[in-house]
């Protein structure tokens, strides 16, 4: 699987366990962008984990807009563990987006890193 090397993956048992705090923490720790990769809609082992994740991601996007960091730096994607190429595509897409947005103003050094949270390895 080929994707940009500047991504740090944080694994979680289910995207539904994602919490506003974890997402904000990633940004505070210097991430330029964060994307949450949840399972395909309808495919959640815990029934609605990925739907909930999306709602929370949307809430945090709104909060990021309000506090001036910009909701665009955060995104939710749905894909399955078997979709390696799709993962690479998303990673590249997100990297592209973050490049366009520039490094996070929260960190002074310019080299970007990106965190990804979710349940896809």
């Amino acid at each position: 699987m080929q994707y940009v090397p500047n991504i740090r993956i944080v694994e979680m048992p289910c995207s539904g366990t994602i919490d506003h705090r974890v997402l904000l923490q990633a940004f505070e720790d210097g991430a330029d962008g964060v994307f949450v990769a949840g399972c395909m809609e309808g495919d959640c082992h815990f029934q609605k984990g990925n739907y909930r994740a999306r709602k929370r991601v949307n809430a945090v996007k709104k909060l990021l807009d309000e506090i001036g960091l910009g909701g665009e730096r955060l995104e939710m994607y749905n894909l399955s563990a078997a979709m390696g190429p799709r993962f690479a595509e998303i990673a590249n897409e997100m990297t592209e987006r973050v490049r366009r947005l520039g490094p996070s103003p929260l960190k002074k050094q310019s080299a970007g890193t990106m965190e990804k949270e979710g349940d896809v390895a």
């Binding site: 705090r21 940004f27 909060l63």
Partner: peptide, 17 residues
């Protein structure tokens, strides 16, 4: 607890910006 921590993080980010 959760809302308190979220608010704290959001305010910190805002001020760092």
């Amino acid at each position: 607890e959760k809302e308190t921590e979220i608010l704290a993080a959001a305010l910190r980010i805002m001020r760092r910006l």
